[in-house]
Write a protein that binds this DNA or RNA. Structure first.
Lengths: 353, 353
DNA sequence: AAACGACCTGTTAACGTTATCAGGTCGTTT
DNA sequence: AAACGACCTGATAACGTTAACAGGTCGTTT
């Protein structure tokens, strides 16, 4: 019927208006359900719109309305359940309020981080949620965007700005408690896997590890801290994975005085470490105890099930979305809001004295 | 200097033009590096633009140019490495050609699938890559978009359309070979975890399983096929996870005549199954052999390491991007292209006679 | 009978950008 | 000296939509 000849040019309001014998404005009113339109007119317009397969032009619409009902989310690696859960939480809240979420991934490189900010800002998203790791250049660009009045909320990014809200988990405390847990089990020789001493000092859970050791009078031994980054970009190390954990653990196993317990940067790293330990014919937790981080679904299905630190990931996403919506609808930029969520140590069978 | 008073209104080309004493068009030329501009003019414009912190308006630009240099990617769950790898491959190729990637996630619900298509189409992405599972409504909407001339490429979606290219892995064959591998090891009683018989018959790797059984004269036993979906939406089952694998395996273990081998829908499901087997005090592969699917990084770090089927995921993303770019630049809609990549059985220690 | 408000429709002018055309000034070639 | 092309700049008119205003017709209230 309508497919005599699919022309190049997309259908516009004007086309519908012409066909239906009304003004474009009336069509707009019908399609947006705004203002008065006679029921017969509405029906007719809708019929024509359907027949012509009309899709509204979000560019024109956004340009005129000065908002797009769209929010951008910048993630690093999307491979890990952490990022996925965040995105879910964000989407959940946004959807309720009629916003669409566009995700950009920056694979943990500063250059791509900037590119993502710019793309989203240029396409005039109404707000931006940023969950990538901090970097000088990235922070500077974010400051610019915030200065321009774009609502921005940060998730777990180590960057303070008066105009951007922050949502985070207390990973310092989480790391502290994980380490303290191992200490309380009698361990004195506790390794950390998943960081480069030269570049990764900013990691909160690692600082928690250091502080716990200090507070309990244990020495920090540099050769117990292993595991470089995946990333090609020195400034922003990649998400630590199984192979980092595996390699790191093997390195630790070679030490003359090897650790009796290990704190892995995250659960995947922990799984890699478990694999190296098992391969070496050692038992967990009898020979080596291990703690992960994040409590991904996998963690309860390893053998042995993994002691880990759970952070309320989806909740962080939800709150971030809420903060952002608040900024978006506010007439005046609201005061900065910050929410730090508590983590929870989940003790399973991978740790014991 | 420039921060006397950050006004609400964003800076426009006209603002720069006024400050620099030139016409907006000249500013446009400078910023797009098109046409001739005297070097002094260029410098001056750039200086002013920088000072005013100009960001171009992608909406206006896209509206005028009738393209946005933007591509949309629709994914289901982003939690799994499969989706992440796809996205990486897509991005890799797009970036080289100056396109930005916006990702929408639809959490495996038809309604959200449609919403994602619409959002992206309305915002006038130049093309669309769809990697969610097929559904009647979704396919219909895609047909409309294709009919409207929007370039579309499908990844592993069970939907044929003359105007959309397809990239996929030969999961039927992959499933066949995984099953055949088990059969060749002498197994006759082979379970499948991760599907609902009522709704999931469309899964290729499962069909491969069925065919392999048939070809080798083995009966298909319905009570060996377990594992429902996560999804709330009947039409589009969720990504099968550890808990599905765990629950499914426990169900299989309860059978009077329990299977000696199990084919899990994907590696996460397999890990859950492994966990249930271990918990029951059985050994892998001596008591029960197990095969996963996807070869995620995790697979080589389970104990025992997992036999699985590797599909060239990133490559699928790359090819999809290539197909799409070809469609985008083409003056006339090019003929349909289809690329089915081969899978590879990766034998590790979770399988034996 | 005038005034009012609810209902219905249309016209106009943007939103910020760029394609296109038009109009210049040069220096070089014929 | 005329013609040409390279260089540089600007005015104009869209792209498709909607906010704002204006102008109607009714039925009901004062």
């Amino acid at each position: 019927m309508s497919k005599h000849r699919e022309s190049k040019r997309p259908v516009t309001l004007a086309d519908i208006a012409a066909q239906a014998g009304v003004a474009p404005m009336t069509v707009s009113r019908v399609l947006n359900q705004s203002g008065y339109v006679h029921v017969d007119t509405r029906e007719k317009v809708l019929r024509v719109a359907r027949a012509l397969n009309y899709r509204r032009n979000g560019l024109a619409r956004g340009l005129k309305r000065q908002r797009t009902d769209t929010v951008g989310l910048v993630l690093g690696d999307i491979a890990n359940p952490f990022a996925a859960e965040l995105a879910r939480g964000v989407r959940e809240r946004l959807e309720e309020r009629g916003y669409t979420l566009f995700i950009c991934i920056s694979e943990y490189s500063v250059k791509e981080d900037l590119a993502a900010f710019d793309s989203l800002a240029d396409h005039r998203v109404d707000g931006l949620i940023v969950a990538t790791r901090a970097s000088k250049l990235g922070n500077d660009r974010l400051s610019e965007l915030i200065g321009m009045g774009i609502p921005v909320v940060l998730i777990g990014r180590d960057f303070w700005h008066p105009g951007a809200d922050l949502v985070a988990a207390d990973n310092h405390k989480g790391g502290y408690e994980a380490t303290e847990h191992l200490i309380s089990l009698g361990h004195k020789n506790i390794g950390f896997i998943g960081i480069k001493l030269t570049s990764g000092m900013g990691l909160r859970r690692f600082q928690g590890y250091l502080e716990a050791l200090r507070d309990h009078g244990l020495a920090v031994e540099e050769n117990l801290i292993v595991g470089g980054s995946d990333g090609t970009d020195e400034q922003m190390p990649g998400y630590s994975t199984e192979s980092i954990g595996y390699d790191g653990m093997r390195q630790l196993l070679k030490l003359k005085r090897r650790p009796t317990a290990v704190f892995a940067r995250n659960d995947f790293t922990a799984v890699g470490a478990v694999s190296a330990i098992t391969e070496a014919g050692l038992r967990i937790p009898e020979d080596i105890a291990i703690v992960g981080y994040d409590d991904v679904p996998l963690a309860s299905h390893t053998s042995p099930p993994l002691t880990t630190v759970r952070q309320p990931t989806r909740e962080q996403g939800r709150i971030a979305a809420e903060f952002l919506l608040r900024r978006i609808v506010a007439a005046q930029p609201p005061p900065r809001e910050e929410k730090v969520l508590q983590c929870e140590l989940v003790v399973r069978e991978s740790t014991a004295a």
